[in-house]
Amino acid sequence: MPGWDWGAFFRYLVSPYLLEGAWTTIWLSAVVMTFGLLLGLLAAVMNMSKNRALQSIAGFYLWIMRGTPLLVQLIIIYTGLPQVGIKLNVVQSALLGLSLNEGAYLSEIIRAGILSVPRGQFDAARALGMDYSTLMRVIVLPQAARVIIPPLGNNFNGLLKTTSITSVISMEELLRRGQMLIQVDFRVLEIFTVAALYYLVMITAWGVVQRRLEAHFGRSVTPTAERKRTNGAGTANVGSARLDRREMEHDLR
């Protein structure tokens, strides 16, 4: 079966079987991102908490998840855990493995985002009587979003492609569907070219969404020159344990 077959290529291009696989890739990525964000936020907050125990739990989680390959994690969850009586099906294993892994990476991004918000913002929110969760939801996270969204989008881009790893535990996403089709048709080049094109389309579409998101979360701070100057000074000042060092310069006239 030598040579490139255009007919086969176009047939695969509109094959519902492969399209279904692509759809699985999309929803799998979206669900994993959602769980990953929740896990990541939780781990980030625990990591920054003053409570040593919470810190350690978060640290341990990050250490394990970032210190071992995703492939190993997935195989342990799907193939290994049944040995101790924990049986998860393919979809559950894929969701759990990917989410745990993604959450660990996202937590560092979220943490950096929260740390980018000046201390004065926390002070002002607390002074208004906001408790921690309100302060996070209303004041800190919307501002952190501006810093978080670009690397977050990058991660989602990576995630769309990383989901292909779940093919090893026979999750029928795009790559796995392609492999299964090849076992019937043996048209490796055409089928994988189509799969690659699908990935490209998904990634490109995500790029458009990401730019929109960045524009949305950056909107209120577009006239930034003035704001950055004052807020920057604010951070430096609060950081110095408020030792009133600017005082003498500013007297009465």
Binding site: G120, Q121, A124, A125, D131, Q143
Partner: peptide, 25 residues
């Protein structure tokens, strides 16, 4: 922390660096 937050409702504070929330009007 929640109880302290409640107590703070009675005390307004104005900062040297204003600390307005930049993402809000």
């Amino acid at each position: 922390e929640r109880e302290v937050a409640k107590q703070r409702q009675d005390v307004g504070m104005v900062f040297q660096q204003f600390n307005l929330f930049p993402h809000l009007t």
